[in-house]
């Protein structure tokens, strides 16, 4: 009888005691013992539900540990804007985590930055940081987009056409180039020409197309050859950002844009055939010379309506967005000495 009773007690401990102990630990003891709140987030392709949970709230000043695990394919996990958190690849069955303390209220996006499925761009989640005092964060206004709207510019103009008719009055004939404009050559020869003051002003360049700059430059220098003018303009429109900024923008581009637009900007990324409209070709100077920086900026931040281009305003900071715009400029021109 004694061994029977012992066996019965052990059985009850296993079948009832163990589950109760584990549940109690998970429900009460673990949160009490943990120095930080742990939030487990499962990453699955959007067709299978995306991030689960896809939204959660934390308090400003609270330290939380976010643990991402993938259940299907390799995902890339990043959180933005402005946090600089990129956890890299999370392979199926693996976990990556980050511990964070937010010092003020705001809304952040955790997102996948590795192409994982045809609906990869939908794979995002919202992390809302609340102020314990109940003060809601002031919605951030974007003066650049507001200015474009005030100017009556259609941000959603088809980027495969010139777009100029939507932006700047009368349509312009498409630009053609005998060779790729060279910013490097432009930097070497620019001192020989009379550069109108507008072209030397960064804010003017942001709100005007290189084609408009080309027109001003040609008027100021009637003898300038077409190729030299293009080189000088290429130089002027690619000198906004430092090399380091361009390098980090290149990394952002590779992770977030190249799947559709192609790593070289040729519009032939692996997902290009799946988008509603063909992705913009950044390596084509004919296209890039009629694009305004501020319009590119607006498209990146707001997304392209009806094009499958997602919004990145919830992911990138303003600085990161401008850096990306500057990086796009470099894709259409030569930036190194042509050997």
């Amino acid at each position: 009888m004694r061994r029977e009773r012992t066996a019965l007690i052990i059985t009850l401990l296993i079948l009832a005691g163990l589950p109760v102990a584990i549940l109690s630990y998970q429900r009460w003891l673990r949160p009490a013992l943990s120095p930080t709140r742990v939030i487990d987030i499962i990453a699955a392709i959007p067709e299978a539900g995306g991030f689960q949970p896809s939204a959660f709230k934390v308090e400003a000043g609270e330290t939380v540990t976010l643990r991402f695990s993938s259940v299907d394919v390799t995902h890339g996990i990043a959180i933005g804007p402005g946090l600089g958190i990129d956890l890299g690849h999370v392979d199926p069955g693996h976990v990556k985590e980050v511990t964070l303390t937010f010092d003020r209220a705001g809304t952040y996006t955790f997102y996948c930055n590795t192409w994982c499925s045809p609906n990869h761009w939908r794979m995002r989640g919202v992390l809302e940081v609340n102020d314990p005092s109940g003060i809601a964060p002031t919605p951030q206004r974007d003066p650049v987009i507001e200015a474009l709207n005030a100017e009556g510019i259609n941000i959603d103009a088809d980027h495969t056409s010139s777009g100029m008719s939507d932006m700047d009055g009368p349509p312009m004939p498409p630009l053609t180039f005998d060779s790729r404009p060279s910013a490097f050559r432009g930097s070497e020869i620019s001192s020989r020409f009379n550069i109108p003051s507008n072209l030397n002003t960064a804010t003017w360049r942001r709100s005007h197309t290189p084609a408009q700059g080309l027109e001003l430059l040609t008027i100021a220098n009637p003898a300038i050859s077409k190729a030299a003018a293009a080189d000088v303009i290429a130089y002027l429109w690619t000198r906004n950002a430092s090399r380091a900024t361009l390098a980090s923008a290149a990394s952002l581009y590779d992770k977030n844009c190249a799947a559709c637009h192609g790593q070289t900007g040729d519009g032939k990324g692996p997902m290009a055939n799946l988008t509603v409209k063909p992705p913009a070709v950044f390596s084509d100077p004919s296209h890039m010379f009629i694009m305004r920086d501020d319009v590119s900026y607006a498209k990146i931040r707001r997304g392209g309506m009806g094009t499958d281009m997602p919004n990145f305003g919830t992911v990138f900071t303003l600085e990161e967005t401008w850096a990306l715009v500057d990086y796009l400029r470099t894709l259409a021109v030569e930036t190194q000495k042509n050997k």
């Binding site: 584990i22 487990d40 499962i42 695990s69 993938s70 259940v71 069955g93 693996h94 976990v95």
Partner: peptide, 12 residues
């Protein structure tokens, strides 16, 4: 129990 309440990451 680990399947029901543990990490969804299979390898862990």
């Amino acid at each position: 129990l680990s399947g029901l309440f543990g990490t969804p990451a299979g390898s862990r």
